[in-house]
Design a protein around this nucleic acid. Structure first.
Lengths: 209, 209
DNA sequence: GCTATAATTAATTAAATAGTTAATTATGCT
DNA sequence: AGCATAATTAACTATTTAATTAATTATAGC
């Protein structure tokens, strides 16, 4: 099939992609329908044709991103035989995703700051699912006798929060490093090294000696 | 002096206080001048009389909060004789502040998500100052021979990011706990226990054995 | 080729909101 | 008391923007 002049699915996808870019760059409120229309190359009315309204489009953006990260984390779990390996996979996968989709952390942090104003239910469910995955790993580690008792919620934020913040602050940290060479903002640290460092830190604290 | 009908300083302070409340609850964009006027009980034009404009008011909000947390952290450092004690004081003080001023974490996280769109310079300086404090503690610990070499930027976010997220998600976590009693979202955890847990986790990882 | 329908657009509406202005009221000073 | 000035207000303006509508264009099935 040759290139079509009209392709509903492609149009919808393009609008969604543009929305992901703009919402993450500027947030929900500071992104206008006109911005999205311009970025996508389609008329603004198509937002309302394909998505119920601006909030609906935002919801689609979030579930798209959450679904894909959840799938990746679930997938990465398969090839592990111990809680320690699963923990490493969890952190590495999340880090890889945050790097691959650097808009996601900004969106997530903003949403958490808002207590999920824009998408109460979906957000909620997705966050919970991800947290349950980590909780299971930690519980499994305790059962295996390799992990101490921990506070899973705190560890979850130590992993996910830290990774998100490192990604969103990348530019700021690069700027800070340029202005003041005394200070080490880790602005050139590769993501996988950071992930490894977080893993080691948490593993060390969890280990039963 | 008796209660005055007009008190410029008090008015300005009231507007600032209202702005802190509303900006932190709803963010910069979603907070209107009318909201602030209503909350403060004064006319909207006074925002422009006492502060240059909405962005100026926002800037005042942020520097007020940043100044006060910085002072508290500096203060807490005084009564410590070792790097370990300073690290604990840093974490405890930040945790205490975040609990006392629960609007601050939301504002900070939002600002970081935006890469400091609304207040490039001030924000920047304040973040840096706080980070330098932690870096110094870690370096001191290395010199004392009690801390391993670390990645200060990552540890900084593991502390500050985690605390901020725990505070901002308080309501969400409480809701999650109510809906699903299987899951432990740490919704009743006292802040000082959380701070202690974070401290122990990081200290353990830093210790030279 | 014709027709029903799906996709797309231009133009418009109605509401919200940042910022201004000119008038009004209180206060301190002499 | 009266005056200059500081504090406060009500009303308004200009702009932005989410959402709608009615018209237009392409497409697929017959």
């Amino acid at each position: 099939m040759a290139k079509q002049k009209r392709d509903a699915e492609a149009t919808k996808a393009k609008i969604l992609a543009s929305a992901i870019t703009l919402f993450s760059k500027n947030g929900f409120d500071a992104t206008t329908g006109d911005d999205i229309a311009k970025e996508s190359g389609f008329n603004k009315a198509l937002i309302y044709y394909y998505f119920k309204n601006k909030a609906g489009l935002y919801g689609s953006v979030m579930s798209t991103l959450f679904d894909s990260i959840y799938k990746e984390v679930i997938d990465s779990k398969k090839c592990c035989d111990s809680a320690t390996a699963e923990l490493r996979a969890f952190i590495e996968t999340y880090a890889g995703y945050a790097q691959k989709q650097p808009y996601f952390p900004a969106l997530l942090l903003r949403e958490l700051s808002d207590s999920g104003t824009h998408l109460p239910e979906m957000m909620f469910e997705s966050m919970r699912r991800l947290f349950v995955l980590l909780s299971d790993i930690l519980r499994k580690g305790e059962e295996e006798g390799v992990f101490k008792k921990s506070i899973p919620m705190v560890l979850h934020f130590m992993i996910v929060g830290t990774l998100n913040l490192l990604v969103t602050t990348q530019q700021l940290r690069a700027k800070a490093a340029k202005e003041d060479t005394q200070i080490d903002t880790c602005s050139d640290c590769p993501m996988d090294e950071i992930a490894e460092y977080i893993f080691t830190t948490i593993k060390t604290a969890l280990e039963v000696k």
